[in-house]
């Protein structure tokens, strides 16, 4: 009952070792599937996701929100797979996403550049020079990605529990070493550690879903999860965000309940009449809003959200012993 998070370099035999470990322990195995699954789930193009996680970032991407959004999708998928337990995950991002996770053995598989190029050159149609170029390009790209997404040096030994060089070790040796290290009590999942992992996975999925949603994307919402109960916090400028965020979170399988602690700025709670106190600021602006001004269906939806928000807040206020209501 453990999780193995492996990072490999091109031609290092990391994937082969990962598969051998999974076969030896009867664990599930995932490498590129992680990316594909993340892509399918969040409706993104698989090629774009591969680029985000594996390849070298372009200068523009350093400033783009899109990169972080995709990274959130991949992170959510990795955490969800890890929460299922008994799994071997191979990919650059895995040891970093699962860095602080309990019962996760973080492994890095590497070998000298020259040897990795030789291995790749064994495939038909690849010249030795092309193989070396590929290895170098891959190293540069993955290392730059790790720096951009996780602010970490992917070659730093202290980011892993175990590092193996396949210069002398073969796939069998590597797999046996990993399995042996995994036998330590430290890496066996417990009831409590599995709950922690599930909560992290749920929080991460809510986070990713909020990113994927046209209304809630790019809004600074804080998501936490304890015992399956998701708490949303933060401040937004439109009541519909408050409603949508809650709906997004509640729709995720495994979420037991949602505590919506988001504050809507610009909505006064203590007004008796509803006609005049709603400012433009309380309406949802930007990409989620339909065209055609503030009238019609959109206007109704926003009003409905404001009323619901108010009711919820007033209900909370009445429940609390000292109602924080202003009298005027």
């Amino acid at each position: 009952m453990s999780v193995v998070a492996m990072s490999d370099t091109a031609g290092s035999l990391g994937v082969e070792i990962g598969r051998a470990v999974a076969a030896g322990l009867d664990y599930a195995f995932a490498d590129r599937e992680i990316i594909t699954e993340a892509a399918e789930r969040f409706g993104q193009d698989a090629r774009a996701l591969t680029h985000i996680v594996e390849e070298r970032p372009t200068l523009r991407e350093h400033f783009e929100v899109g990169t972080r959004r995709y990274a959130a999708f991949v992170e959510a998928t990795i955490l969800e797979m890890a929460a299922r337990d008994d799994v071997v995950l191979v990919g650059r991002a895995c040891p970093f996403v699962l860095g602080e996770a309990p019962h996760t053995l973080r492994v890095r598989i590497d070998a000298p550049e020259r040897l990795r190029a030789e291995r790749i050159a064994r495939s038909p149609g690849i010249t030795p020079q092309a193989a070396l170029d590929r290895v170098r390009e891959s190293d540069r790209g993955r290392s730059a990605r790790t720096k951009l997404l996780f602010h970490a040096d992917w070659g730093d030994p202290l980011r892993y529990d175990l590092l193996l060089s396949t210069e002398r070790l073969d796939v069998d040796d590597g797999a046996r070493a990993v399995i042996q290290a995994l036998a330590a009590e430290r890496f066996r999942s417990t009831e409590a550690s599995r709950r922690t992992m599930t909560d992290r996975a749920l929080a991460s999925q809510v986070h990713a879903r909020l990113f994927a949603n046209a209304v809630t994307r790019d809004r600074p919402l804080e998501v936490t999860c304890a015992g399956g109960v998701v708490t949303l916090a933060g401040a937004v400028d439109a009541a519909q965000l408050w409603v949508t965020a809650e709906e997004v979170a509640a729709a995720i399988p495994g979420v037991a309940a949602v505590r919506n602690e988001i504050t809507v700025i610009g909505v006064a709670l203590d007004t008796r009449s509803e006609g005049d106190e709603l400012s433009h600021a309380a309406f949802l602006h930007g990409e989620g809003r339909s065209w055609g001004g503030y009238g019609g269906e959109w206007y109704e939806r926003e009003w409905d959200a404001v009323r619901r928000y108010r009711d919820a807040r007033r209900g909370q206020a009445q429940e609390s012993p000292e109602p924080a209501r202003r009298t005027s």
């Binding site: 890095r108 590497d110 070998a111 000298p112 070659g155 030994p157 892993y160 529990d161 175990l162 590092l163 193996l164 060089s165 210069e167 002398r168 070790l169 070493a177």
Partner: peptide, 8 residues
């Protein structure tokens, strides 16, 4: 780390 077979 490539100077070693195993880093613990």
């Amino acid at each position: 780390s490539l100077r070693y077979d195993l880093v613990v």
